[in-house]
């Protein structure tokens, strides 16, 4: 009877092996955050999140790619590069990020008035459309319009340190300019190509005398899942068959040995 129980438990073991495996890792509770150094006179910086270095040596105009952070509150500390431990952070702030959202955290204004500005980013454009927004991060510069050269403004009256809402445009190549609200060109952006299904952020940075634009691509056309690229016709997973054959062979060998012993 004991042996019968043992065999039953072996059957249970075998069944157990066919139970679907569950993948533990989950990206659903993560947020995306990227950093932008937009303070024209601030030194290169190191960024620490919850005490861990995530960005080192980011200079003025540096923008990082998105990094994944667990949703919730995090302590963000920004130090002049290489000074953690010897100097106080230039900025220390608590930021709260939500799962599934994307953010840009920008260090803006002059070094003296340095501040951290966090904005939420869009990760999706309508199919075949381009989505663009403009951020005015030039301390001391007047309000600006962004539009086609010599034509109507697409974004008007953006003031420091404001970021406009996203606008939907047709993809194409545009002769854009950043100009004061009275029409004086500040930055020439002729030949800017915007592609379909992409999201862009144009951040104006620098000083009133030396303004420039960082055009970042926030998102591109992405499917929600991976393509299905197989029907299983050439899958060589015949472990079950091989194992069964080996098992039967062992059983047969066992019988032979058993019989020989009883004959002896």
């Amino acid at each position: 009877m004991k042996k019968l129980l043992a065999s039953l438990s072996a059957v249970v073991l075998i069944l157990g092996m066919f139970a679907p495996s569950v993948f533990a890792k989950d990206h659903a509770d993560m947020a995306k955050v990227r950093g932008l150094h937009a303070s024209p006179d601030a030194p290169a910086v190191d960024v620490y999140v919850d005490g861990n270095a995530v960005v080192e040596g980011a200079e003025f105009k540096a923008a990082t790619d998105y990094m994944e952070l667990p949703a919730g509150e995090h302590q963000v500390e920004i130090y002049a590069a290489g000074t953690k431990g010897s100097q106080d952070p230039v900025i220390s702030a608590n930021v709260n990020v939500e799962a599934g959202m994307a953010y840009t955290a920008a260090a803006i204004n002059t070094l003296e008035n340095l501040e951290l500005k966090a904005i939420q980013d869009s990760m999706e454009a309508a199919e075949g459309k381009s989505k663009v927004r403009v951020g005015h991060f030039i301390p001391g510069a007047p309000a600006v319009d962004v539009g086609l050269v010599g034509r109507d403004a697409i974004f008007s009256g953006a003031e420091f340190p404001m970021v406009t809402d996203y606008k939907e445009l047709d993809p194409g190549t545009y002769d854009l300019e950043v100009r004061t609200t009275d029409g004086t060109q500040l930055i020439d952006l002729s030949g800017t190509t915007l592609e379909g299904s992409k999201v862009y952020s144009a951040f104006a940075v620098g000083t009133a005398d030396n303004p420039e634009v960082l055009l970042l691509e926030d998102s591109a056309a992405m499917p929600t899942s991976m393509p299905k690229t197989g029907f299983g016709g050439a899958n060589d997973s015949n472990a079950l068959l091989a194992a069964t054959a080996l098992g039967l062979a062992a059983m047969g060998a066992g019988f032979v040995i058993f019989r020989r012993r009883s004959e002896a």
């Binding site: 042996k3 472990a239 091989a242 194992a243 098992g247 059983m251 058993f258």
Partner: peptide, 20 residues
């Protein structure tokens, strides 16, 4: 039961080793 159990054990072990 000896050979039967042996067969099962070999099956289990080899399946574990062989399967992807």
């Amino acid at each position: 039961w000896f050979p039967v159990t042996l067969g099962f054990l070999v099956f289990i072990v080899s399946f574990q080793l062989l399967k992807d």
